[in-house]
Design a protein around this nucleic acid. Structure first.
Lengths: 167, 167
DNA sequence: TTGTATGCAAATAATTTGCACCAAA
DNA sequence: TTTGGTGCAAATTATTTGCATACAA
């Protein structure tokens, strides 16, 4: 099943992210640089959500081998999103990225205590979305649903702390 | 019906936003200043979504009567959110505000062409949210759902333009 | 060769903050 | 009189951009 809700032809999942990106570059007459190759590796090793800053932190520093300037990191992240490899959204003011290519559509729960993101899938949500959009005469291209709250662990820990406080 | 999904006692809707804010200030030992009074008027005259910049644009300029510095506008907007008068969320990188106090819970459709926000209400969405959260062991405090797409008008205009282009 | 990509540093944009002065309670 | 509030300007933060140079095709 295609990952993107907008593709008209099924995604060729036999392509690796790298190959998919090459294709993207070639069809637009863009170049395959060492930085782009290195970054796609780095990004697809990550399995969690991340922002530009976190990514840069894990990358080689100025002077080290494979160093990539922040400007290029920002530029390349945007290209990855254009190419359909990543998705991005805003959270607490910063831009958060997550893998898209090859990953199933999902939405998020956000724990406001530990600031972690959790994922969930819901077919009903998609249906609801399309119904609402249809009613309002909208041509849907996507959506973003984030449920805020406190996750199980944080609820537990808070309880634990409260008990300790009583001792 | 209470506007906030978190209130344990029903909201006293007989209070005006102004009165509600006074209450908020008093319970915290904060002060009722002329700036705060002026801003609450200005904000509750607005019936649409707005960001800090748009609000500041509509306010008196430096030197004019009732001028309020941007710093104070930013500070006060955050207080209004704390007080439950406004809600805020991120869109395209900027912080968008909307009236909350006295307004029913709703979510948004966002037209990526004209950048307008439209509202919709859905009880099913709330149920779905609570179910998902419960499954994941989340204690829900809120959510944010935005459906992106192209609104009816923009779809029409685009068609019109296409036709014109053919002439 | 030829134009795209990169690195660097400066520029932005949207907020936030430090601080001296002002003013509610 | 006391402590919170405001205006101003400087500081932040996250990101983008201009430009000279480097390099893929």
């Amino acid at each position: 099943m295609p990952t993107s809700s907008e593709s008209f032809e099924p995604l060729d999942v036999s392509l690796s992210p790298q190959e998919r990106f090459e294709e993207y570059l070639q069809t637009r007459g863009l170049r395959q640089t060492s930085q782009r190759k290195f970054l796609i590796e780095a990004v697809f090793q990550e399995h969690d959500h991340f922002d530009a800053d976190e990514l840069i932190d894990r990358l080689p520093r100025r002077g080290e081998k494979n160093y990539v300037s922040s400007a290029t990191v920002y530029r390349t992240l945007r290209e990855f999103v254009d190419a359909g490899l990543l998705k991005s959204f805003q959270l607490d003011g910063r831009t958060v990225y997550e893998l898209d290519y090859g990953y199933p559509q999902h939405d998020h729960l956000y724990c406001t205590r530990c600031r972690k993101l959790f994922e969930f899938q819901s077919e009903s949500l998609m249906q609801l979305r399309d119904e609402v959009a249809h009613e309002k005469g909208f041509r849907v291209s996507g959506h973003r649903m984030i449920i805020q709250g406190v996750c199980r662990d944080c609820t537990k820990n808070r309880r634990k702390k409260r008990k300790q406080d009583l001792v």
